[in-house]
Computed example of a mutant assay.
Amino acid sequence: MLNRIPIQEISTLAILIPLILAGWRLKTGDLKLCLFFAFLLFGALVDGLGWFLYLNGYSFYIHAFFQFLYLWFEAIFFVWLAFEFLSFENNKFWKSLILFALNLLFVCDGFIRFILDHAGGNLRGFIYALMLVISSFLIAFALLRIAESREDIMQYPWFWILSGIFFYCFGSFFIDMLSYTDFGSQLWGFRNVVNILQYGFFVVGLVRMGKF
């Protein structure tokens, strides 16, 4: 049933809805929202570049480079955003340590793949899996913090946006882990479903932002 639906195309186009809404809300001047808009815009441009190269038969090397930069930005943004809602002892230390470690891993991966011209598939998979796990835990703690500090949690825009990110990180990691099994290889298409549902959470949050 899923194979009959152009799910990948829908996933690519679905990002435009939260992107437009986030752009409309930029007048608030909130740094979190500005970076969230940049995150969506970067993702839309990278997806668009991939389709352009695919339809015109060009090499995907350029797309691989920009996709690498996007994944790097995504990892840093998710961690930074989570810590914006966290408050505990040595908060700045742990934030700096995690960001430094992620940056170091991405620099190593980029050097191996683009300077030494080696695929580095195992390292790339490890880095992305690590990013998803770290982001899932941090976003989950941020959501708990929001739940503890606010009574209007269902009306709070960032609760929905963070929920979308958590759903994406946890769902993607779960699918990635299963992809190494015979059963899991059939679930790869559900990554696009996870993407679409994530954008749904984003839309709810951005709509709430206009009423908050």
Rank of each mutant, 00 (worst) to 15 (best):
L49E: 04
L49F: 02
L49P: 11
L49N: 01
G50E: 15
G50C: 14
W51I: 11
F52D: 11
F52G: 15
F52V: 09
F52T: 04
L53D: 03
L53N: 15
Y54K: 07
L55N: 11
L55G: 10
G57N: 09
G57E: 06
Y58L: 15
Y58T: 10
S59G: 12
S59Q: 09
F60T: 14
F60W: 14
F60P: 00
Y61W: 12
H63T: 05
H63Q: 15
H63E: 15
A64V: 04
A64C: 12
F65E: 05
F65K: 03
F65W: 09
F65C: 13
F65T: 11
F66L: 13
F66C: 05
Q67A: 13
F68G: 10
F68W: 08
L69W: 13
Y70V: 05
W72C: 09
F73I: 05
F73D: 00
F73E: 11
A75R: 00
I76Y: 10
I76A: 10
F78A: 09
F78N: 02
F78G: 02
V79N: 05
V79C: 03
V79Q: 04
W80I: 08
W80K: 07
L81W: 02
L81I: 13
E84D: 14
F85C: 06
F85W: 13
L86N: 13
S87L: 11
S87R: 14
S87D: 15
S87W: 08
E89Q: 05
N90Q: 14
N90C: 13
N91C: 09
K92F: 14
K92C: 06
F93V: 06
F93H: 15
W94S: 01
K95T: 13
K95R: 15
L97G: 09
I98M: 09
I98E: 00
I98Y: 08
I98K: 04
I98N: 01
L99G: 02
L99A: 06
F100Y: 14
F100M: 06
F100L: 15
F100C: 05
A101K: 03
L102A: 12
N103C: 03
N103T: 12
N103A: 09
L104R: 10
L105T: 01
C108I: 11
D109F: 01
G110E: 02
F111G: 03
F111T: 01
F111N: 04
I112H: 06
R113D: 00
R113H: 07
R113T: 00
F114P: 00
F114A: 06
F114Y: 03
F114W: 03
L116A: 07
D117C: 15
H118D: 10
A119G: 02
G120E: 01
G121N: 10
G121T: 06
N122M: 13
L123T: 02
G125C: 04
G125K: 07
F126L: 15
I127D: 01
A129N: 12
A129K: 08
A129G: 07
L130F: 11
M131Y: 05
L132F: 08
I134F: 01
S135Q: 01
S135V: 11
S136C: 07
S136H: 02
F137S: 06
F137M: 12
L138M: 09
I139M: 06
